[in-house]
Each structure stands twice: as structure tokens, then as C-alpha cells.
């Protein structure tokens, strides 16, 4: 029984809520977390970019677009959002200070993961409601199937974000995660399936966490089908990058 520290769950929830608010209050973060995914959703709804895939699988254009936008949300929050927040917290000594409070290092990391999940819930509500308003008819079974996939994707990208934030300077973290976001969103197989590439390059996005998450989510939400390979790829990224992050993460700048 603790006499001095608040209970572990209340500490972690407090930190999770605090970091969620911090991310959602930051203007630049809001662009990345909410505005860009919404823009992508609208653009893919009203242009014919995804029509060839929609025809090939005999589904609506929107059915290809929504899973990709959800994957983009995961990437925005876990890689860019948490990466940038953690990078600057490390630079300003916040990680050091909070690790000396009862929260501790473990609680701080758990709070960060919780914040990623909470921000993702906010994003998904906004994206799914907007998609419904724009005429999307959801695949309910597929939506439930996608929940573990989204969490696995969040784990892979959070590991990557924390590895970058914990090893390079804050400004470099900012540059790297934003660059990675742009490249992966564009050609990483998130929004647009990798099959647009010449056959000999197609495997590249598929082995990246971005392409694996996009593929897995499209299979689930478009076709109600569970694809094992992209899940294995996401799990491998999580385990390998997570292990490196645990070893290399520096708590002070």
C-alpha cells in the first residue's frame, strides 16, 4: 500500500491525459494530426486517384481511401506527434524531471503510449464522421477487425518516434519525422497502394511499417480479410525498433 505516491494507474492516466491535451493544443501538431488527414480524405474522395484500385476490387473509391487515411492518422500521432513532443521534452529536461517524480520512467512511457491511443480515438471519430457525412458506407465487421491492426501500427510507429526522439537533437527529430511523414504519406504505401510502382520496386513500401499498415487496413476494411504478412512485418518493426529504442534512448539532452 502506498502512503506517498498516487496509484500507478492514476499516475499513468494523469500523464496520458496531460500529453493528449498538450498535443491537441499545439497548432502545428493539430495540422499534422487532424487537418492533413482531413484534407487527404476530401482529396481522395473527390479525385480519381484511387479509381483503378476501386474498380479492380469492385468497391467504391471511398472504401480504398478511408483505411489509408486511418493509417495516416496513426503515423501522424505515433511517429510525428509523439516523436516531436518527446524530442522537445528531452531537450528541456522535462523527461529528466518527470522521471524523478513518482511517475518514473516506466510511467512516463506508459503515459505517452496512452496519449497516442487517446489522440488516435479523437482522430478516428473526426475522420469516420466526416467520411460518413461524405457518403461512406462503413464495413462494420472490418472496422472491428482493424482495431488490433491500428494498435499494432501505433506500437510500431511509437517505437520509431521514440527511437528518433531519444537519440538525436530535438531540431533533428523535428526534421526527420516531418520528412519521414511526407515521404511515407506520399510514396510509402499509406494512402496509395504500392502497386502503382513498377513491379520490381513494389516490395519496398510493403516491408515498411507504412505500407504494411496501409495494406492490412485496406484488406480488412475493403474486403473483410485478415492479411497475416503485413501484421508480421508490423510486429517485427515494433520488436526490433522497440528493443533498439530501449537500449539507445537517452533521457537527457
Amino acid at each position: 500500500m502506498s502512503n506517498f505516491a498516487a496509484s500507478p494507474s492514476s499516475r499513468i492516466i494523469a500523464q496520458g491525459v496531460y500529453e493528449t491535451k498538450a498535443m491537441l493544443k499545439n497548432g502545428e501538431q493539430l495540422m499534422l494530426l487532424i487537418a492533413f488527414p482531413l484534407m487527404a480524405l476530401v482529396a481522395l474522395r473527390y479525385t480519381g486517384i484511387l479509381d483503378s484500385w476501386a474498380h479492380a476490387h469492385n468497391v467504391e473509391r471511398f472504401d480504398v481511401a478511408v483505411p489509408g487515411v486511418l493509417a495516416l492518422c496513426v503515423m501522424s500521432t505515433a511517429l510525428s506527434g509523439q516523436g516531436i513532443a518527446t524530442g522537445f521534452d528531452r531537450r528541456y529536461g522535462v523527461l529528466r524531471f518527470l522521471s524523478t517524480t513518482p511517475l518514473g520512467r516506466g510511467g512516463l512511457m506508459a503515459g505517452k503510449v496512452l496519449a497516442v491511443v487517446m489522440v488516435m480515438i479523437v482522430q478516428f471519430v473526426i475522420i469516420l464522421v466526416t467520411a460518413l457525412l461524405l457518403g461512406w458506407s462503413p464495413n462494420i465487421t472490418g472496422l472491428f477487425m482493424s482495431i488490433p491492426t491500428l494498435l499494432l501500427g501505433a506500437a510500431a510507429f511509437t517505437s520509431l518516434g521514440l527511437l528518433i526522439a531519444g537519440t538525436v537533437r530535438a531540431e533533428a527529430t523535428l526534421a526527420i519525422v516531418n520528412m519521414a511523414w511526407v515521404i511515407l504519406a506520399g510514396v510509402g504505401g499509406v494512402l496509395i497502394p504500392s502497386s502503382y510502382l513498377p513491379a520490381f520496386l513494389e516490395w519496398i513500401p510493403n516491408v515498411l511499417p507504412s505500407g504494411a499498415l496501409g495494406e492490412a487496413l485496406r484488406a480488412e476494411l475493403m474486403l473483410t480479410r485478415f492479411e497475416l504478412l503485413p501484421h508480421i512485418i508490423l510486429l517485427l518493426w515494433t520488436l526490433v525498433v522497440g528493443a533498439i529504442a530501449l537500449k539507445k534512448f537517452k533521457w537527457s539532452a
Binding site: 502506498s2 506517498f4 521534452d89 528541456y92
Partner: peptide
């Protein structure tokens, strides 16, 4: 342990405060 950390107050030289709050 968290219980020990709860009994120790620390003011770091660089403050360790988040900036945007």
C-alpha cells in the same frame, strides 16, 4: 520505487519544465 521518489523533491538546474504550458 515510486514510493521513494514521492518523498523526494527535486529542483533541477535547468528547471526541467515543459515550455508550452
Amino acid at each position: 520505487s515510486p514510493e521513494l521518489r514521492a518523498q523526494v523533491g527535486i529542483m533541477l538546474q535547468d528547471g526541467g519544465l515543459p515550455q508550452a504550458i
